[in-house]
């Protein structure tokens, strides 16, 4: 069956054009790429500035070649918030939060739950309120249950409306408190760790499809950019209808990020893709490299 898919969390900077092609074929039409850790720690603000430039420059261009709308969420991630050499990222962030393709602040939240992470998390929640942007919150891999409860406390204290917050990487033990908080619930479907599509279907059966988001969180680790599609197929196999799949894989993420006022889901005919991109079929699609 044809599905339209919006992957609300995927790190395309780490992926290949083969992935873009396979995603397009699977039904992916729009994505959000949150700023996060690159595997190798960064040691200066300049590294982040170049990364942010890529997320509002080259990466949307690359995605556009494959008919996929690319948006991003920008933030200083919790892991690197612990390095004092990176603290200045918070001073340049406001300039980037004004950009067209930036539809949220994120990923923010906790990694090791340090005082430095507390400060960066709270400050960036304030920035989200100031810039009228929703927020994508990462929950820690270690000590996840306690970390999720603490995350919800910080969100509540910030004063941001819960319907403007995604709490991500949830599992069977953390979904209920987030449901009760009024925040959106997101699940990263991985080949063998955070959550898989069969467990995801059971969660949807138990907790319903409202405020539910499914993402691949595909990055530089073992991950699969087609896990959104796999979840849709698992839903159908378990007896969910096509409309349920469309709600979870498309209408829910669209409704959430539309709160930014900056979501652009028009076809790729406007100014951001020049005639050049399709001139005689000659473009990145054909492997041309200007070097």
């Amino acid at each position: 069956m044809a599905m339209r898919i919006f992957d609300p969390h995927i790190h395309m900077t780490s992926r290949t054009t083969d992935d873009y092609e396979a995603m397009r074929d699977a039904g992916v039409r729009a994505i959000v790429e949150p700023a996060f850790w690159l595997g190798q720690p960064r040691t200066s603000v300049g590294s982040f500035v170049d990364y942010f430039d890529g997320l509002v420059g080259w990466e949307p261009f690359r995605a556009g070649q494959f008919g996929i709308r690319h948006h991003c969420a920008l933030a200083l991630n919790p892991k690197e918030a612990n390095d004092p050499r990176c603290a200045g990222v918070l001073d340049v962030l406001p300039r980037y939060l004004a950009k067209d393709g930036v539809v949220a602040v994120g990923e923010v939240g906790y990694d090791s739950m340090t005082p430095e992470e507390d400060e960066a998390f709270a400050r960036q929640l304030r920035m989200a309120i100031e810039h009228d942007l929703p927020v994508l919150v990462h929950t820690p891999h270690r000590d996840k249950h306690a970390g999720t409860l603490r995350t919800l406390d910080v969100v509540r204290e910030s004063g941001i409306a819960p319907e403007r917050v995604i709490v991500d990487h949830l599992n069977e033990l953390t979904v209920r408190p987030v449901l009760e908080s009024g925040c959106w619930m997101a699940f990263s479907i991985y080949p063998d760790t955070k959550m898989d599509e069969v467990r995801m279907v059971r969660i949807l059966q138990e907790y319903g499809t409202e405020r539910m988001l499914v993402n691949s969180a595909a990055d530089w680790g073992r991950s699969d950019p087609l896990k959104t599609r796999a979840t849709g197929e698992a839903m159908l196999a378990a007896g969910f209808g096509e409309d349920d799949v469309d709600l979870v894989l498309w209408r829910n993420p669209v409704a959430f990020f539309a709160q930014s006022g900056r979501l652009d889901l028009s076809e790729q005919s406007e100014g951001d893709i020049d005639a050049a991109a399709t001139f005689e079929g000659n473009s990145i699609l054909r492997g041309a490299r200007a070097g």
Partner: peptide, 12 residues
Amino acid sequence: LKCLFTGIPLAD
């Protein structure tokens, strides 16, 4: 030359 490589029409 870069235009030729990347498919930008020379008329542009």
